[in-house]
Every structure is written in C-alpha cells, then in structure tokens.
C-alpha cells in the first residue's frame, strides 16, 4: 500500500487509532484524578478545589525524591522499583496531606452553609499553589525520563510506549483496588452508608468522621499516584499545573456523574478521547472549547452525568 500524502494522513485508519491510543492513555490519567474528586464529592458533597494543586505538590515531592535518590542513573530494575516506591511515597504524602486539610479546615465547617467548604477549598488551593511556587520556582521544570519511551508495537505506524503502558497498568490496578475496597470491605460499606445519609450512618454506629477522613486519605493517595504518573508521562511540571488538570478531571467527574467512581473513569476516558481527537482533527488550541461544549451537551441531555444517579431532594 503506497504511503498517503501528508495532508491525507489525517484520514488514515492508523492515524485515527493512534489518536485513540493517546486518548485512552490520557483519559486514564484524567480518570485517576477524577476519582479523587468524585470520592470526596460523593461523601461530603464538596467540590475539592484543591485536589489539582494537591497533585501538583505530589509532583513536586516526586521531583525532589528523584533528584535526591539519583534514580536517573540507576539500572532498569532499580528504576522500576524506584517508580513503585515513588508511587507509595507520593500516595502516602498526598493522602496524609489531604486528610490533614480535611481535619483542620473542612471538618469544622461540616454544619456551615455549603458555600463555606467550597470557598475554603479554593483558599487551600491557593496556599498549595504558593507552596508549589516556592518548591519549584515560577518556571516550569522538566521531569527526568525514568521510563524509556520504547515502542511496544513493531513498526512505527502505531506508538504505544512503556510510558503509556505504565499509565494504563497503574490506573487499571488502582481502579480495581478501589472498587474492591468500596464494594467488599467494611470501610467501603461505611463509605457508601455515609454518602447516602450521614446521620443514619452515625445512628447505626458508623464513625462518620473517620470514614470521611479515610475517604480524604484514599482520594489524596489516588492523587499522589496520579502525580507520579503525570510526572513520568508528561515530564513537565509547574506550580500552575494543578488548575488545568483539575479542570479537566473535574469536568470528567461531572460528565460521568459526580460521586460515581465508574462514572469518573468513563468521564475521564471520554475527555481523554475527545481531547486527543480534537487536537488531531481540529486543532490543539480548540480542545478546551470542544471539551466544554461536550460537557454542556451531555449535561443538557443527562443532567446527572453519564453514569450518575438522579438524586432526590429530601423533603
């Protein structure tokens, strides 16, 4: 088959598949962040504005750890173990930080009006950004390439590298772990109970505060993992990255049905695909507008999101 001329390459099947692959990988990353939003929203109805910036701080820590450990020059096996350790360290860090923020900032506002925690979350996001500014400096920093960008497919029509594989594998593993946790553990059951009705859950002996703290920890830990994956995959981090990522991830959470974890995954994949296809076929600069238009369209037809349940107001 003769090679297509460049201006027709866009309509080839390979090109399309390639964009889909990129979209799925990006979407997995977005889904990971979106799950953090969705979990916190599901349990206390708070749009955790600081989640994107929490991930930025996770990326800061990852960069510092990589710099301090000299992981860049280590052999391949050591690097893989290093990545696992990074995931654990950043997960622990972000989870603990998220839990601490909940304990000291959101918890006293549980009975306040709905606006109060939201505004506080915006405030926390500012504080995080300032910390990130001091940590990274005002300019973007590049993250060392720990995972080789070796293509897994033979030939160069399709590109799917170890980096892509890492993203997909980690996200799938975390997703499975999370759904097992929510479905079949005591904590998961308590979480579902609290998200349905905190008062009733408290009455039957669930320690609501602990469940909420655990949710914040898990959401934050997912964010920490996301920060490592993001750094390894995108390889550029900066103190303002939280806002953009947060925006896409939150859009994904809303799109899939906020509060629903499978919804966050579906929303993330949809947004990842839309982004990559739009930037390939329409132009990079219009991707934001297209994602937004799709969000509006979906909300018009399904206000509860793709997989969300319709909520009934208690009267």
């Amino acid at each position: 088959m003769p090679a297509l001329p460049p201006h027709l390459a866009m309509i080839s099947l390979e090109f399309f598949l390639q964009q889909c692959l990129i979209g799925v990988t990006n979407g997995a990353l977005i889904a990971l962040v979106a799950m953090g939003y969705s979990m916190v929203y599901g349990i206390i109805g708070l749009i955790n504005f600081a989640h994107g910036d929490l991930i930025m701080l996770g990326a800061c820590l990852a960069l510092s750890l990589v710099g301090a450990s000299g992981l860049v020059d280590a052999g391949p096996t050591a690097t893989w173990w290093g990545v696992v350790l990074l995931l654990l360290a950043c997960g622990l860090f972000c989870g603990t930080l998220n839990m601490a923020v909940d304990r000291f900032i959101y918890k006293p506002l549980r009975n306040a009006s709905k606006l109060a925690p939201l505004v506080s979350a915006i405030g926390v996001s500012f504080i995080f950004m300032n910390v990130g500014l001091f940590w990274l400096g005002p300019a973007d920093r590049s993250f060392p390439e720990l995972v080789p960008p070796t293509n897994l497919f033979s030939g160069d029509t399709l590109q799917f590298t170890y980096q892509d594989l890492l993203v997909v594998v980690v996200v799938v593993l975390l997703m499975v772990a999370l759904s097992v946790l929510v479905r079949s553990t005591r904590l998961g059951r308590a979480m579902r109970a609290v998200s349905q009705d905190p008062t009733a859950a408290a009455l039957v002996g669930v320690d609501v505060d602990r469940v909420i703290a655990a949710t914040f920890f898990i959401g934050g830990a997912l964010g920490g993992a996301a920060s490592v994956i993001y750094s390894l995959y995108i390889k550029t981090i900066g103190f303002q990255m939280g806002f953009q990522n947060g925006l896409y991830a939150f859009t994904a959470a809303v799109l899939g049905g906020i509060g629903s974890i499978p919804g966050a995954v579906v929303g993330g994949l949809v947004i990842g695909l839309v982004r990559s296809l739009a930037s390939a076929y329409v132009g990079e600069r219009w991707t934001g507008a297209i994602v937004f238009a799709i969000l509006i369209v979906i909300l018009v037809f399904r206000p509860e999101g793709l997989l969300g349940r319709r909520t009934r107001e208690k009267v």
């Binding site: 506002l109 506080s120 001091f134």
Partner: peptide, 22 residues
C-alpha cells in the same frame, strides 16, 4: 520570591479565605 511580600500573595489570599469562612 520567598523573601518578597508579593511572593506570598497567593498564600495570603488563601489563608484569608480559609479564616473568613471559619
């Protein structure tokens, strides 16, 4: 930037928001 006042701008806004809400 840590030792300039405007370097703390975001944090000051953030703390102000949190404190006002609290």
């Amino acid at each position: 930037s840590m030792l300039s006042f405007s370097g703390w701008r975001l944090a000051i806004f953030g703390v102000a928001l949190v404190l006002v809400m609290r």
